[in-house]
Design a protein around this nucleic acid. Structure first.
Lengths: 117, 117
DNA sequence: GAAAGTGTTAACCGAATGGTTAACTATGGT
DNA sequence: ACCATAGTTAACCATTCGGTTAACACTTTC
């Protein structure tokens, strides 16, 4: 599944940093590796994971390789999260009150405080 | 980092299914386990991962345990993706043209070839 | 065509993941 | 008290992950 690969790819902080860097535009493998205190093969592996998820594309360009961010999988992941949000924003509060009414235990967050942002 | 735990939690299909089910409202551990062809301890572990990420909350309720979806981490993950999107939608095309102008090799995504999959 | 530059592949390693079964804890019902 | 219900914890196992070093491959330059 694409979602699985995408979320797993984004789970690693190094790979997220790579994606963030690619947000400033395409970059070579070397320049992507530079900020990270690890060997080049490690970066190669991370890029393979990102590429397998479809998040980045790699194009040979002379003797360097240029990596570019690919939109589709990130968009798909965002959509999945957005679908979940349809719930939290609206339904959550109502359902929790239903639960709370049945047994007023110390779950204490339903009526007095709201940590929404 | 919260983002790391959140993305890692969502990387597993079973855990995503749990989150989706919780989108219909709070549920007991048993009812969350029912749809999945695995043992209860496996589900317990998945719930611990989701709880560690702050994605679900567990409240004892008699001899059952009610799990509820928690908004904050999902919102944070969605925000991270949304920030990335600021790039793909607008800047990508322009940057790629800059790159392409420098050396018109067959980076071929614009008009001729497309190996996307 | 040999040397240097840019990445990848291969082999290996320790730690984390995702699952199992068996034993245990905790609550509720009789 | 005793038993059933609902979940967790413990111990274990195979696989995957994230990193390493060493060797290889492709491109450019001299």
């Amino acid at each position: 599944m694409t979602l699985e690969r995408t979320f797993r790819a984004l789970a690693d902080p190094t790979r997220r940093a790579i994606v963030e860097q690619l947000g400033s535009g395409p970059a070579t493998v070397g320049s992507l590796a530079a900020p990270h205190p690890m060997s080049l093969p490690a970066i190669t592996k991370h890029l393979r994971v990102l590429e397998a998820a479809g998040v980045v594309r790699r194009d040979r360009r002379g003797r360097t390789i240029v990596c570019t961010l690919e939109a589709a999988p990130l968009r798909e992941a965002e959509s999945w999260l957005a679908d979940r949000r349809l719930f939290w924003s609206a339904t959550l509060d109502r359902l929790e009150r239903l639960l709370g009414a049945d047994s007023p235990a110390d779950r204490g967050h339903a009526d007095t405080k709201e940590q929404d942002g």
